[in-house]
Design a protein around this nucleic acid. Structure first.
Lengths: 186, 186, 186, 186
DNA sequence: CATGAATGAGATTTCATTCAT
DNA sequence: GATGAATGAAATCTCATTCAT
């Protein structure tokens, strides 16, 4: 594995354990097994590392979601796959999902390349747009519908992790609430 | 105004402007017009100050919401008042709202007194419970419904602040999406 | 002695011995017998310390020169007092004088407040101008005459410190060469 | 141009602009268009580069002065040629001259081979000694006279570069002040 | 000869907290 | 209680130098 990846992985592990302000760059280098200065040859500043890590995780999530969505053919089923796989990934990768949330509500958000963000969102927006065009989804701004779907995921994640539920119960709630959500936007 | 309030207000102003890690305790003391050490006589640590400030802001929001809700009599109207006034407050107090979000996704959340949090949520939960009891709202866990309402607010805030909209357009979207939401849970 | 002075003195000693960049702020603090952070409470940055130190030393020199010059009444005597007291001060305060020279030839010169510099030079220029007006000194640009006087001091200092001379011999040379210099410009 | 020269030129430019310690070897390599490590194949250490650069520049100045002086036969004319050509070279090679001054007032001066320095000064001292022996120049220590001549050059350079003067005006001042200087020492 | 990634010691600066007054 | 100078640990980042390719 190349040093950049070693650093990314070490940073992920430590940020997720102690938050980004609680994690010293020296600890990241140590965990990665590289010299202190090496970190700064790959990432000019600690901030740049945080942002890179965020993009890295987002990509992992996107890959996971894309994989599940690809298996579905109907439009509703594809959108459902996006929402549900996002939730399943979040439940399986709690720390990474929390890291994403931390970034979203922190000043780091301003440092993100907006073009990259939009590229990551594009597949989701495209699917929703398709639904609108086919008359399946309500005539509302795509970005609005996307925001509502996304917040549904975050809200449900919040609820599911605050309750002591079995996996079966979790799945039931996820399925049930998706149907409510779908009725709401279709 | 007593020194504790001076410090709280100064902290609010600075945290809201630069985030809590970007704000030194010495700057807070300076802004408050008190000595460096005085801050630590009212708050044993910086963390304690952060938590106090969070509760202070939440209280402000709660007061704002309560004031609007009190004017309504019907159940739907009261819940609608809660959702809408939360959104209006968030749009008018963007930085404070973002501060709340920051705390929610940060390790500070663990330091909060859960009892106080539950006390703040109680009025909202009670209203939803009333709706369920009266058969107006679907038979789902109160906490789940509350999570969905809350995430609706966050999602809509996200959308509204990312688009260049007039106040009238904002109001229309807020009203329209609330009706969708209401149909979803009722 | 107060801590600011302790730091100033320690900095002077170490800067002259190892240069600005060869001297770590931590070493200065150590030499001054104060904590690392204390230095930065008196001087926001290392650069500010360098500049402050320069101004401090220049002021000390100016006071010394002014004190000697005040005792003289004739114009030649007053200019002579300026040149000679500068030299005596330089010989007695070798490290400080060398520090001034270091600053003059370094990029720090750009960070100095030009107004302060001109204020410090003003008394010397005024005296020369008086000499020109009274027809005692040659009709040449004041700044040129000042540059020649100043360089005479630096050149003579260079010579005197490179030779093993008694104080009496030093004084003789200083007196003799001043007369040569005076003949040159008058 | 070979890589050694590329490095020398890049170093000169950056040292004068930012000082020795303000200039990283990596920046020099970058400016020279060579790899980081290449610099250390030509110069074992950064200090060696600084010292080499100094000697390189001093040699260039010496050649320039020698060339002009060789054209003159009379003793005064030869000394005048030395002083004037030094000044003309300084005005044409401002950065190099400033670099020389920086070295002279820095701790690097201690690292210079004193024998090489004296060898460089020898021709100037010899000429002055000749003047003394022939009774043309005052009976004063050679080193003293040399120090006065040298400081005259530095002082005049300082003045000329601080004023907005045409080349003709510069020449007039240089000629005029040399005559004053000559009257002073002869 | 040339490269440039890697190194790691060390530099500057910050800041929550303490404590003598 | 109030003060604010002092602390010093810790954090981020730099940079001269090396060495395997």
């Amino acid at each position: 594995m190349d040093k950049r990846d070693l650093i990314i992985n070490a940073a992920l592990k430590l940020f997720v354990a102690h938050g980004f302000h609680g994690t010293a760059t020296s600890k990241i280098a140590q965990e990665a097994g590289v010299a202190n200065g090496t970190l700064f040859q790959y990432f000019k500043t600690k901030d740049e590392l945080v942002v890179s890590l965020y993009l890295h995780i987002k990509e992992e999530l996107a890959d996971y979601v894309a994989q599940y969505t690809a298996k579905q053919t109907g439009l509703k089923e594809r959108i459902k796959a996006q929402v549900l796989s996002s939730l399943y990934w979040a439940l399986e990768n709690g720390t990474k999902f929390q890291f994403i949330q931390q970034i979203h509500t922190s000043p780091y958000i301003g440092q993100l390349d907006q073009e990259v963000i939009q590229q990551q969102n594009a597949p989701h927006l495209a699917l929703i747009q398709q639904g609108i065009d086919q008359g399946i989804i309500k005539q509302l701004p795509v970005a609005l519908l996307y925001a509502l779907l996304t917040s549904h995921i975050f809200g449900l994640y919040q609820y599911l992790t605050s309750q002591p539920l079995t996996q079966t119960q979790q799945h039931t709630i996820i399925e049930t609430t998706f149907e409510l959500l779908w009725d709401m936007i279709s």
